[in-house]
Amino acid sequence: MPDLTYRLVIRACHVLFRALGLRIDVRGAYRLPQTGPVVVAANHSSFIDFMFVGLVATARGRLVRFMAKKSVFDAPVSGQLLRGMHHIPVDRAHGETAARAAYRALLAGEVVGIYPEATIGRAFVVKDRVDVKRGAAYLALRTGAPIVPVAHWGVHRIFTVGGRWSLRRGTAVQVLVGDPITPMPGEDAEALTTRVHDVLVGMVERLVDAYPQKPAQPHTAWWWPATRGGAAPAADEARHLDEEARLKADAGRRG
Rank of each mutant, 00 (worst) to 15 (best):
P2Y: 02
D3A: 15
R7A: 05
R11Q: 10
C13L: 13
H14F: 10
V15W: 15
F17A: 13
F17Q: 13
F17K: 06
G21I: 00
I24Q: 00
D25A: 08
V26K: 01
G28L: 02
L32M: 00
Q34S: 12
Q34A: 08
Q34G: 15
G36D: 08
P37A: 15
V38T: 10
V39Q: 10
N43M: 00
I48S: 01
D49M: 00
G54W: 13
L55C: 04
T58Q: 11
R62Y: 12
L63T: 12
V64T: 12
V64D: 03
M67R: 07
M67H: 07
D74C: 10
A75W: 12
S78Y: 07
S78G: 10
G79P: 06
G79Q: 03
G79C: 06
Q80M: 11
Q80L: 14
L81T: 08
R83V: 14
G84M: 04
H86E: 15
H87A: 12
I88Q: 07
I88D: 04
A93Y: 08
G95C: 12
A98H: 09
A98M: 14
A99L: 15
A102F: 03
A102D: 05
R104N: 13
R104P: 08
A108E: 15
E110F: 05
T119P: 08
G121M: 03
R122D: 00
A123W: 06
A123N: 14
F124M: 06
V130Q: 14
V130I: 11
V132M: 13
K133R: 15
K133M: 14
R134K: 13
R134E: 11
G135K: 09
A136F: 06
A136I: 04
A137N: 12
Y138I: 10
R142M: 09
G144L: 09
A145F: 01
P146K: 06
V148I: 06
P149E: 10
H156S: 00
V161K: 15
G163E: 04
G163A: 02
T171V: 15
A172L: 01
V173W: 11
Q174E: 12
G178L: 05
P180M: 01
D188T: 01
D188P: 07
A191C: 05
L192G: 04
T194E: 15
T194Y: 12
R195G: 06
R195Y: 09
V196P: 04
H197T: 01
D198A: 03
V199K: 09
A210H: 13
A210P: 10
Y211S: 01
Q213Y: 13
K214R: 15
P215V: 02
W224R: 05
G229I: 01
G230N: 10
A232N: 10
A234I: 08
D236N: 07
E237C: 06
A238E: 02
H240N: 13
H240W: 14
L241P: 04
D242V: 03
E244G: 03
E244K: 12
A245R: 08
R246M: 07
